[in-house]
Design a protein around this nucleic acid. Sequence first.
DNA 1: GATGAATGAGCATTCATTCAT
DNA 2: GATGAATGAATGCTCATTCAT
Lengths: 187, 187, 187, 187
Amino acid sequence: MKKDEQIIQTALKLFVDNGFHGTATSKIAQESGVANGTLFNYFATKEILIVSIHNSITKKMDDFIMESLGTKSVSKESFRKLFLASLDWNLNNRLEFQYLQQFNSSPYSKSLMARILNINEHPLYVLIKNGIDLVLLKPMPPALIFSLFTSQVNGLFYYLIANETSVENTKNLTEQTFDLFWNMIED
Amino acid sequence: MKKDEQIIQTALKLFVDNGFHGTATSKIAQESGVANGTLFNYFATKEILIVSIHNSITKKMDDFIMESLGTKSVSKESFRKLFLASLDWNLNNRLEFQYLQQFNSSPYSKSLMARILNINEHPLYVLIKNGIDLVLLKPMPPALIFSLFTSQVNGLFYYLIANETSVENTKNLTEQTFDLFWNMIED
Amino acid sequence: MKKDEQIIQTALKLFVDNGFHGTATSKIAQESGVANGTLFNYFATKEILIVSIHNSITKKMDDFIMESLGTKSVSKESFRKLFLASLDWNLNNRLEFQYLQQFNSSPYSKSLMARILNINEHPLYVLIKNGIDLVLLKPMPPALIFSLFTSQVNGLFYYLIANETSVENTKNLTEQTFDLFWNMIED
Amino acid sequence: MKKDEQIIQTALKLFVDNGFHGTATSKIAQESGVANGTLFNYFATKEILIVSIHNSITKKMDDFIMESLGTKSVSKESFRKLFLASLDWNLNNRLEFQYLQQFNSSPYSKSLMARILNINEHPLYVLIKNGIDLVLLKPMPPALIFSLFTSQVNGLFYYLIANETSVENTKNLTEQTFDLFWNMIED
DNA sequence: GATGAATGAGCATTCATTCAT
DNA sequence: GATGAATGAATGCTCATTCAT
């Protein structure tokens, strides 16, 4: 692994465990196997490191979800794929999930360097907008449906991690929860 | 206002604006109109102050929601009241909402002194459980419905604060969103 | 017990256990059963309290030794009585002994308020001086004999507290050690 | 001089002059010609610095005395060499002597990091024990003779610093005082 | 590019002392 | 005389950042 990636991975874990303030850059350098000063050759300041981790995570997450979506046809199946992919990513990247939570509720989230996710270009948003236009979905503000979609995924995710269950059961609950959601928004 | 309450209010605002680390205790004392040392007569450490603010907020929130609920009859109306009260509280106490978000994704949330909310005794959870028993709600894990309820409120809340709209419109969207949710979970 | 005496006794123990710096005036007040501010009605500053304790101890010690001496006739018996009394006081007032050690090796010992023991007026010094004049003792500087006397007592004392032994044995060792010392200084 | 040694020397002087509490670490750093934080790169806490100084002093003192002793033959000459070396060290290292006094009557002396001087292995103790076995010394507890030896050295030392005198005279008094002591303990 | 010793601003916390009640 | 809340100067220690090697 390249050094910058190594540093990001180490820092990610330490930040989630001990918070931004609770993690000294010297500790990150040490656990990354580099010298104190070396860290600053890759990330000029601690804040830049923190934001870089955020950007790295969101990029990977977006890539994963986009790839999972495949074709962008407007259909229940597309929504279903997005729902499953989002949940899967959360379940398989819990450290990253926690990091994003922590980052978003910290003052760093106001940093100008943070990747800005323009909701209008988000594939889910586009899908919803088209769905409404095609009278496949209820005539509601697309941003509201977008927000409810995200929340529903999170709601299920929180339940699943608080009540660890079998893979099979997880799958069933996921399908069931998606169906509930779909019935809620389809016209 | 009593001094401890004054300190809590000042700290709440500063913590939300600048983060826990970004807010010096001396700054809190100064803006609270007390001397540096006085703050520590009321809250022995910064961590205790941070946890105390959390406990103060959750207590007020719980009280508000419980009062809004009134009778605990198992009915759509009760769920509606809880939905509206939760959203209202979020909308009218944004600083406190942000504080809770920040606190929950910080290492302080693991503090032993933090009020522990036992989900089994939460009025919403009880309502859901009874609703399932009475075949008013779909036969799903009550904790999942609980989680989806909370998420739906948050989903709507995020939409509303990102798209400020008239009080009238807010009210309509809220009723509409609750109805969607209700249709989703009723048997 | 009067309040000032009560405070002195409490402070004495706390200072020996935790050092001057390690003992907060508030702690002394608390353990003395008085309020924070009350302590300062009796001792205007912490330093005054520290010096007062020193003076109180040295006065009591001097009184005890003087009383033990009785007649001031220049004789082996007088030296013996002083030797025994000094040792006894150390053995029976270990807290006070430790306090004096700590005080004397602290910057407080330079305080102008500390009782000054003018060696020339010290009964032991007078005794020694007269002993030399009467050719009872070796012709050495009296201050040197004084210092050796004190050191011999301390040397025995340190041995006794490091090797707790029976009262009988303690007595025997004391007499034996004094005899050694006497043989050393008698002409 | 290496930086840690420089810091130790500076701190030694300041601690003796102003006490442990009366000496701020920032003052030590400043007078050592290093930055505040640098001090803590060498000594993680103030307490560690204090104990390190103690250990440094006792090591140097032990080395000096051991070297002065030379052969360990059991003879009056060996005791004489130890007596002279101990006194010399005290006279030539007064700051260090005062430091040890202050340290030993402070709570820091209970620190686990402090060098433990096991009396049984002390060269003087061994010498005394062998001297008794060989019927060179009086049949007394060796630890008592040890203690009296040390006290006699201190007693003379206190006299000498209170009554500064010529080198010649100091030498004479020392030899004389040792002879007195030797007569006291020899069988 | 890598190192790690050095830096010094910054902060949480302590505590002797004051004074209004 | 007693109280104890309030004070604020003082200090040990941390840690992001620099830079000479």
